[in-house]
C-alpha cells in the first residue's frame, strides 16, 4: 500500500526546526503543576508507547539475531541468542547472490536518481518561470501523473517494454521509475524554484547568462536542499520497489534486491540464517538513509511541502 501513500512521504519529518524553536517556549509551561493522576496516566501512556516501540523493534531485532544462527537453532530455539555466532552467514549471503542484487539495485537507484533530478528540475524550471496557457496545461498534466498508479499500467507497460525490447533489462525499471517519480519531484522542486527571488535572475540576465545558464548556475546551486530531498525520496522508492522489479525482470543476474530476495529464498532451501542475513543486508542502506539524512529531508521539505 505504500505507493500512493508514499507520495506524501515528502511531508514526513517536516518542521523539526520550528519545533526546536518552540521548545524553549514550551518548556517554561511544562513546569506547570502536574497532578498525581496525570502522572499515573503519563506513565501508563509511556508504557504503551514503549510497548509499541518494542512491537516494532523486536521482529527486526529477531531478524538480526537469527541471521547469525544456524537453521537448527532458528527452528528449535526461537527466542534465544545463538550458541555459535554464524557471522559467516553474511559472507555466504553476499557471495551467493546478494552482492549481485545489491549492485543491480545500486545501479538502478543511481541511474533513476540522476535522471529524475535532471529531467525533473528542468521541467520545474520551465513550470516555475513561465506563464502561458500551455504551461498551465503542462502543469496539470504533470500533477495529474501523481494520481496514476502503476498497478493499472502494469500490463500495458509490460507490452510496451516488450515491444521496445527493453523487458528484462535494467532500463525497464529505470525508465518506469523515472516516469513515476517525476510528478512529485517536479512539484517539490517547482515550489522551491518559485521561492527563489526574481531579482537574482534579472541580474544574471544583465550579466549575459542564457536561460540554461540561469538554470544551471543560479537555480540548481540554490536548490541543493530540495534536491537532496528528492534524492532521498527517489532512492527510497527505487531501492524498495517490488512489483515492476518482479514483473519486468526475469533474469536472476539482473534482479534488484526486492525481487532478488524472492529468488534467494527459493534457491536457499532451508538456509534460513543466510536468508535472514541477506534480508539484513538489504535493509541496512535504507535505515542508514533514515538516520543520517533525516535532517536533509526536514530542511528541504519545510519549504515545499505538498499535499497528495
Amino acid at each position: 500500500m505504500t505507493k500512493t501513500t508514499e507520495n506524501i512521504k515528502s511531508d514526513v519529518l517536516t518542521q523539526d526546526q520550528k519545533r526546536t524553536k518552540e521548545r524553549s517556549a514550551k518548556s517554561v509551561k511544562a513546569s506547570r503543576k502536574t497532578s498525581l493522576s496525570t502522572k499515573v496516566s503519563k506513565n501508563m501512556i509511556l508504557l504503551g508507547l514503549l510497548l509499541f516501540a518494542f512491537v516494532i523493534l523486536y521482529p527486526l531485532f529477531w531478524m538480526v539475531v537469527s541471521s547469525l544462527k544456524s537453521y537448527d537453532e532458528i527452528y528449535n530455539n526461537v527466542w534465544g541468542l545463538p550458541s555459535v555466532w554464524h557471522f559467516e552467514n553474511y559472507a555466504t549471503a553476499w557471495s551467493m547472490g546478494i552482492s549481485g542484487y545489491f549492485i543491480n539495485s545500486l545501479w538502478v537507484t543511481l541511474a533513476t536518481i540522476f535522471l529524475v533530478v535532471i529531467i525533473g528540475s528542468m521541467a520545474a524550471f520551465t513550470l516555475s518561470r513561465y506563464k502561458s496557457r500551455w504551461i498551465d496545461v503542462a502543469l496539470i498534466f504533470t500533477i495529474g501523473g501523481i494520481m496514476m498508479n502503476p498497478q493499472v499500467a502494469l500490463i500495458p507497460l509490460f507490452e510496451m517494454l516488450t515491444w521496445m525490447d527493453l523487458i528484462n533489462t535494467h532500463w525497464a525499471l529505470i525508465l518506469t521509475y523515472v516516469a513515476y517519480r517525476l510528478p512529485l519531484t517536479i512539484i517539490l522542486i517547482r515550489a522551491f524554484f518559485l521561492s527563489i527571488p526574481r531579482e537574482l535572475e534579472e541580474s544574471a540576465i544583465i550579466d549575459g547568462c542564457s536561460e540554461f545558464g540561469i538554470y544551471a548556475r543560479i537555480y540548481l546551486p540554490l536548490s541543493v536542499p530540495i534536491i537532496v530531498t528528492t534524492i532521498v525520496l527517489t532512492a527510497y522508492f527505487a531501492w524498495n520497489e517490488f512489483m515492476f522489479a518482479t514483473v519486468f525482470i526475469d533474469s536472476d543476474m539482473l534482479k534488484t534486491i526486492p525481487s532478488g530476495l524472492m529468488n534467494f529464498r527459493d534457491a536457499l532451501r532451508t538456509d534460513w540464517g543466510v536468508l535472514l542475513a541477506g534480508m539484513v543486508i538489504a535493509t541496512i542502506p535504507m535505515v542508514v538513509l533514515l538516520i543520517f539524512l533525516q535532517r536533509y529531508l526536514v530542511r528541504g521539505l519545510s519549504e515545499g511541502s505538498v499535499k497528495g
Binding site: L115, I118, L166
Partner: peptide, 16 residues
Amino acid sequence: ILLLLLSTLLAACNSG
C-alpha cells in the same frame, strides 16, 4: 545536455 539525455534513452533501447 538534451542530446545527452536523448542518447541515454536511445542507448537504453539498444542495451537489450
